[in-house]
């Protein structure tokens, strides 16, 4: 959490954070449980779980449809859907399930760490550039950086970088601040015994609900902006 430190270890010359690994694994498992549970009995007349997943697929496809060229939507549906449930679960995890051992965070929202959110946005940027190469070929991809003419080259490069940063840091800021505030409300609650406990309980509940709402909105915003970004790559003016 905000003030808590994070345990870390070194492996293969890379640094891993325990909290991110555990939280990421939990999100990963939750996502798998969700998709398997909702698709156990797939029928023509959808039941409860199938309705939920079909609604979600329709929802993410709808977001993609608004931003990508119509003939490309099919190829990006899986990506949009997976991204949405992954980020959505990541945003919500820390709100309902927070674990600290010896002052070190073990479970929290993975998206409250900029490394994770920037990883996600980096993946979007890489995926977008890959899509552009696949769509226009290597030559077309490279020349898209000097359009409308050579002077725009640094601007285009900077645009890539700013997309990467804004996409990752927006969601980090919102989820991180949400968790920091939850932590502060908790500190307030335990500062003066039962009185502040009772006082802060409704505040905590309200803020938790609001954060859950924000987490859902941010997951939506993330795939929306990612698809806008990829759509712009695919619809480059010739």
């Amino acid at each position: 959490m905000g003030n808590g430190t994070v345990a870390s270890f070194q492996l293969f010359g890379l640094t891993f954070s325990v909290a991110n690994l555990v939280s990421g694994a939990i999100v990963f498992l939750l996502a798998i449980i969700f998709v398997i549970a909702t698709t156990r009995h797939i029928t023509m007349r959808p039941s409860k779980g199938q309705n939920v997943i079909e609604w979600l697929i329709d929802f993410t496809n709808g977001v993609l449809k608004g931003n990508l060229p119509a003939n490309e939507v099919r190829g990006y549906g899986l990506w949009g859907f997976t991204l949405f449930i992954f980020i959505f679960l990541s945003n919500q995890l820390g709100l309902f399930f927070n674990l600290m051992i010896n002052g070190k965070a073990i479970v929290r929202s993975p998206t409250s760490d900029p490394v994770v959110t920037l990883t996600m946005s980096l993946m979007t940027v890489v995926f977008a550039n890959y899509s552009s190469i696949r769509r226009w070929g290597t030559k077309g991809y490279l020349t898209s950086f000097v359009k409308p003419f050579w002077f725009f080259f640094p601007i285009n490069i900077f645009e890539e970088l700013s997309s990467f940063l804004t996409l990752g840091l927006r969601i980090f800021g919102i989820i991180y601040s949400g968790e920091v505030l939850l932590e502060m409300i908790w500190q307030l609650a335990e500062s003066h015994g039962i009185l502040t406990m009772a006082l802060s309980l409704p505040i905590e509940m309200i803020w938790q609900g609001f954060s859950a709402f924000l987490g859902a909105i941010q997951a939506y915003v993330f795939i929306m902006l990612s698809s806008v970004y990829i759509g712009r790559k695919l619809q480059e003016e010739d």
Partner: peptide, 10 residues
């Protein structure tokens, strides 16, 4: 710390 391993993990 910069958790560069997390990037790969995620």
């Amino acid at each position: 710390t910069l958790y560069n391993g997390d990037t790969i993990f995620y």
